[in-house]
């Protein structure tokens, strides 16, 4: 190698090294800045999940700590024969299906009605936010009062117009609907706001073009508005589905899982097993199954609806 060449190589290498060093420094800075958040995230998500998985393979009972040992899949095998668990899954499925469907339909309908630039609609839109910002416990208590005979304003109003006054929370056919109604009342505004935001950001051109081509209102909605709203409906539906799986306060406060077990959704059953009877191991196994089911269903919804949206 000639001295001159060495010098050129050195000159060429120097900026590269400087660039690499800067890149490494930048990387280190990013890591340093992200580390606190990552550590917190690790502590609040990964550690409990690992603990959950670990306890799900033990018979951990808080009243009998000496019984703690590895039992493999025993808790999961127990679930297969547990009728109450299967019933809870069926309750959860009904609750989630009607909850999410009604919220999407009503939220979409209201958003279409409120999608105008009028001042008084701003007030109405603000009013719709109120249920959503109330703590779920407050919502559940309010609806419990609405549905409790003898102190129910709802039943009093039904009586005024000579309609039947059902015993909502003790009627096996109505108790789950009472919970669905309270949840729909609280969370439909979430869907409404998301869809309304999407509607107001929607480009005008395709709508105007369709109208010029003579499309009816229904056709515009079916072939233009709805496809454009599909991504936001997917996100809203997914959020609401995941939240519906967590519908705990209403069940706890309004029905306690009853009458019988018609409102005993899976998370409530897991709660009873874990915190009323101290079967933490068994309860963890229920939650693990619930976690897997929720994850698989969410992924399926994203793939199916998401792909359809892309195709259209």
């Amino acid at each position: 190698m000639q001295p001159g060449e060495e010098s050129v190589a050195f000159r060429l290498a120097k900026p590269r090294r400087a660039g690499a060093s800067w890149s490494r420094a930048r990387g280190r800075t990013f890591v340093a800045l992200l580390a606190p958040a990552l550590i917190v995230l690790f502590i609040v998500t990964i550690v409990p999940t690992v603990f959950l998985l670990a306890t799900s393979v033990t018979p951990l009972n808080l009243a009998k700590l000496a019984s703690l040992r590895f039992v493999g899949m025993e808790n999961f095998q127990g679930l297969i024969d547990d009728g109450r668990f299967w019933n809870s899954l069926a309750v959860q499925a009904r609750l989630s299906f009607f909850d999410v469907t009604l919220q999407l339909l009503i939220g979409l309908g209201l958003a279409l009605l409120l999608n105008a630039r009028l001042r008084f609609l701003d007030l109405i839109r603000s009013a719709f936010i109120i249920p959503m910002v109330l703590p779920p416990v407050v919502v559940a208590l309010n609806w419990k009062l609405f549905f409790t005979p003898n102190v129910s304003v709802l039943n009093w109003l039904l009586g005024l117009v000579h309609l039947p006054q059902p015993v909502w929370l003790m009627d096996a056919n109505l108790a789950l609907w009472a919970i669905i109604i309270s949840d729909v009342w609280e969370w439909t505004p979430f869907v409404l706001l998301m869809v309304l935001a999407a509607l107001q950001m929607m480009p005008e051109e395709p709508l105007e073009a369709a109208k010029i081509d003579g499309a009816s209102g229904l056709q515009v909605f079916r072939y233009i508005t709805l496809p454009l709203l599909r991504p936001v409906l997917l996100v809203a539906g997914l959020f609401r589905f995941i939240d519906s799986v967590k519908a705990f306060p209403q069940i706890y406060i309004m029905t306690g899982g009853g009458p019988g077990n018609v409102t005993e959704a899976t998370n409530f059953y897991a709660f009873l097993e874990g915190f009323s009877y101290s079967y933490i191991g068994y309860s963890s196994a229920i939650i693990v199954v619930m976690l897997v089911v929720t994850f698989v269903l969410s992924a399926t919804i994203i793939r199916t609806v998401g792909q359809e949206a892309e195709v259209e």
């Binding site: 096996a172 899982g257 009853g258 009458p259 019988g260 077990n261 018609v262 009873l272 009323s276 009877y277």
Partner: peptide, 14 residues
Amino acid sequence: DRLAQAITSVISGQ
């Protein structure tokens, strides 16, 4: 608790 569940299931006609 399980007993209570059985009794309310009968009362509510389930």
